[in-house]
Design a protein around this nucleic acid. Structure first.
Lengths: 153, 153
DNA sequence: TATTGACTTTGAGTATACTCAAAGTAGTAT
DNA sequence: ATACTACTTTGAGTATACTCAAAGTCAATA
């Protein structure tokens, strides 16, 4: 039988956890209150965040960045805590969310293209005097020619 | 002197405008109330949206999609209505926002990569039984090898 | 022992972006 | 004339995600 030689895991105060994760202490308390984070230890009534807690918070930031709501994140974490038997469910949830992220990226690209055209329009107008929008097609054609970009609308 | 042969511009009811723009009538009213949209005509107290109004709303949707707040969009539209002398200001605002969109895209790509790794992890675990996270480096190396993707964390 | 500082809880408040309900009006169709 | 439809306004309500203030607790340092 192997001897358990693991070090006692380092624990972090809420202020430390806040510093590490980039959330405020208030926000971390809020997340715990809402049941999104759970299993945070207490010592003298004070929260002690484990490495595992911090990893969970790290995952939360990734989820958030892709536009996942706290409600969905909470669901995911709940599945996580239910152990291996929820693997398939978690996978389904992630796949669903991946689609959503891809949709977001397409939208963002479309908007960025629109923005780039607008900026070119303003730049060129400042150089040459206001360009007419009367022949929008021609304007777009010129934009594509001059910038080598593809754009249609 | 040229005769003005322009057709009287077609006007649209709020319901039509809603259908065309994809917003609800309530939302369009809200935007007008907030001073984001302005210059909407009235006939018998009813809103009549011009083509120009609809174009403005279209622009609003693009702005929104890139995560611009209604407050910022309102500012941009206000500059717009002040005429050509605000060209430079509008350009500055758009450039600023373009940076923000690029930042968003980088974030989204990072999150998507994270998500893709997670999904691969779950898929592979379902096939082979739970993969250990003990040697995270090796796991990531395997992921990159098998998918041909680049990933680091 | 007293003070300091880092925490705690409870409950309320804020910002953003809508969303809805209720009561009223104006023009059209039967 | 009456009903119907498509609007109108006012004011309140909702969801999300925090954010803050006030009063209290606990352990360590001066």
């Amino acid at each position: 039988m192997k001897t358990d030689i693991r070090q006692a895991e380092r624990l972090y105060s809420i202020t430390e956890a806040a510093k590490i994760t980039g959330f405020t202490a208030e926000t971390l308390r809020f997340y715990e209150r809402e049941g999104i984070l759970s299993g945070v230890l207490r010592q003298d009534g004070r929260r002690r965040f484990s490495e595992a807690n911090l990893r969970e918070i790290q995952i939360l930031t990734y989820m958030k960045k892709t536009g996942m709501s706290l409600k969905e994140i909470k669901q995911y974490f709940a599945l996580f805590r239910q152990g291996e038997r929820t693997f398939a469910k978690r996978l389904a949830l992630l796949r669903e969310h991946e689609k959503e992220v891809q949709r977001q990226m397409r939208e963002l690209e479309r908007s960025a293209a629109h923005l780039a055209f607008k900026i070119w329009y303003y730049e060129t107008s400042l150089k040459e005097g206001a360009l007419s929008f009367d022949d929008r097609e021609a304007l777009i054609a010129r934009y594509c020619r001059e910038t080598g970009r593809i754009y249609s609308m």
